[in-house]
Amino acid sequence: MGRLLEVNNLQTQFFTQDGVVQAVNDISFYLDEGETLGIVGESGSGKSVGVMSLIRLIPIPPGKIVGGEVIFDGQNLVKMTDNEIRSVRGNRIGMIFQDPMTSLNPVLTIGRQIMEALELHMGMDKTQSRKRTVELLEKVGISGAADQVDRYPHQFSGGMRQRVMIAMGLSCNPQLLIADEPTTALDVTIQAQIVELVQKLQEDLGMAVIWITHDLGVVAGIADRIIVMYAGQTMEEAPVRELFAKSRHPYTHGLIASLPRLDQRSGKLESIEGLPPDLVDLPKGCPFYARCKYRIPKCDKQRPKLDEISPGHYVACHIDINKDSITTEHPWEEDKE
């Protein structure tokens, strides 16, 4: 498997009236061909902005990629001209989004919305693109596709719309599919349908997938590797089994422990007290410092670097939770006014 994507020191900021929002703060990661990478984080963790920055899909202004490079298949996407990046989007990199209700244009038929990418990137004429659209819709499990192409998004259910989105994202046989919380707005039985569909299509087409989610459960079943983000930075990156079995970062650890599990009768959930930091006014040290049970004075002064602690397992933390003991039981209470 070759290296498909390499992101080095990517930094994205939003210049707002309240100040500079450091949405993505120096993240680096890679992705191999055919691989599935899960990016997990809460709202404001920078997981979506980070991945949108890859194909420069953030609103500019106020957003701006202020540093770093994105090497996709040997080319730096950050340095590309607008025309060059457009020929990558929707063509070699497909995307599906969170809310299938709002992500489809309500005034155009679904066929029209899929066909336009085919006509643009594959140089097809109307007849060819229509034929291919019907094939795509059938492939994503929309029965009677020939009759469905001329219908409008509001005539489909949420799950069906997400299938349309997938057909659209995959229309030009991309090498990489970016899935931004594609199941968050869906019911759990529909989520299972969509996850299964994407996995099957990935097997058939051999593309790599970046799956962004806030739900560790969803990526546990599908990802090869997982990146945990917090306040615009990578906290931990590891192969999926290692991450769940041997998480080393206090945040990852807390996140996993705070999840109620269907298969276990857990006692009290371990909760991470406090709130994420303000991205306009990030602390100098580790962004998780204020909520961390293991913190030491060094954490407040110096931002930990992402170190490889075992092959493929990277952690940005000054301490080792397996060796060091909890230093404060309720850190957040100290900060209370």
């Binding site: 039985t189 459960g217 999840l259 599990r261």
Partner: peptide
């Protein structure tokens, strides 16, 4: 049964082994 099987469990070791019941269609 289908609902229980559709709920993801945050544990890759278990997830790999689980057999999902995928319901057809919508409510």
């Amino acid at each position: 049964e289908a609902l229980l099987s559709a709920v993801p469990i945050p544990d890759p070791a278990i997830e790999k082994k689980r057999q999902r019941i995928i319901l057809e269609g919508d409510v």
